[in-house]
Design a protein around this nucleic acid. Sequence first.
DNA 1: AGAGAATAATACGCGGGCGTAACGATCCCG
DNA 2: CGGGATCGTTACGCCCGCGTATTATTCTCT
Lengths: 116, 116
Amino acid sequence: MAVELRTSQALKLLHDLALDQVRDSEPDLTQRQLAILLTVYLEVPPHTVRGLAAKLGVTKPVITRALDTMGKLGLVTRRRDETDRRNVIIQRTVRGSLFVERLGDLVAARARELPV
Amino acid sequence: MAVELRTSQALKLLHDLALDQVRDSEPDLTQRQLAILLTVYLEVPPHTVRGLAAKLGVTKPVITRALDTMGKLGLVTRRRDETDRRNVIIQRTVRGSLFVERLGDLVAARARELPV
DNA sequence: AGAGAATAATACGCGGGCGTAACGATCCCG
DNA sequence: CGGGATCGTTACGCCCGCGTATTATTCTCT
């Protein structure tokens, strides 16, 4: 059975989550950075710069810069593809896994708190 | 009954939504701007700069700037409070209402598409 | 009426993401 | 083996949001 969520519930969920994130003042990822992060952690590897750029519909420098930033935060790592050294493989990290899982838990918890 | 959402479902929902937003390349609100917008549209008026700043835990210039930006986008309007002219009342707009409702519908639709 | 508090806006310099254009490294294939 | 294609990165100038400090306006209270 599908997840049932009314429009009003969806908006309240978004509101709660936005407030959470604003108040916690965490690293504060861009929407693009989040899209990249979740793609890396939810979809099957391998992930390349070019592949991510195509999937998101953005240019490659956008991906490179986002990886730079998230790399500094320890959320993601880069490795050269040895079979084709032009490619770069984006890899998950322990810290990134924790970050993503914590994010999912937060959303699920907020959803559970929604009024019926 | 509460909305049931597993962590994996929550993450997929976030992923889908992030991809939607990145690909549509819409106005692209900041997390803070979204928090302000949803507060204005979901909570009971009146809303002031000071009140929003306190609610989000940010400084007043953050609110002023966000209102400037969203004002240009037509999502929100400002009006002087006539009973205390120091205050500014933030008001909803037709365009903002449509934007918010469309956002809620999108989230609800994506939630409904989630695998069981 | 006047001093002080409160409100929102503005000024300033900083950091970071953006798009376009260029670059170096690596591969492919005739 | 060498020219062209492919991949990721870097350079450049631009814009925008940020935090702090300051300003202008309005209210409050004696």
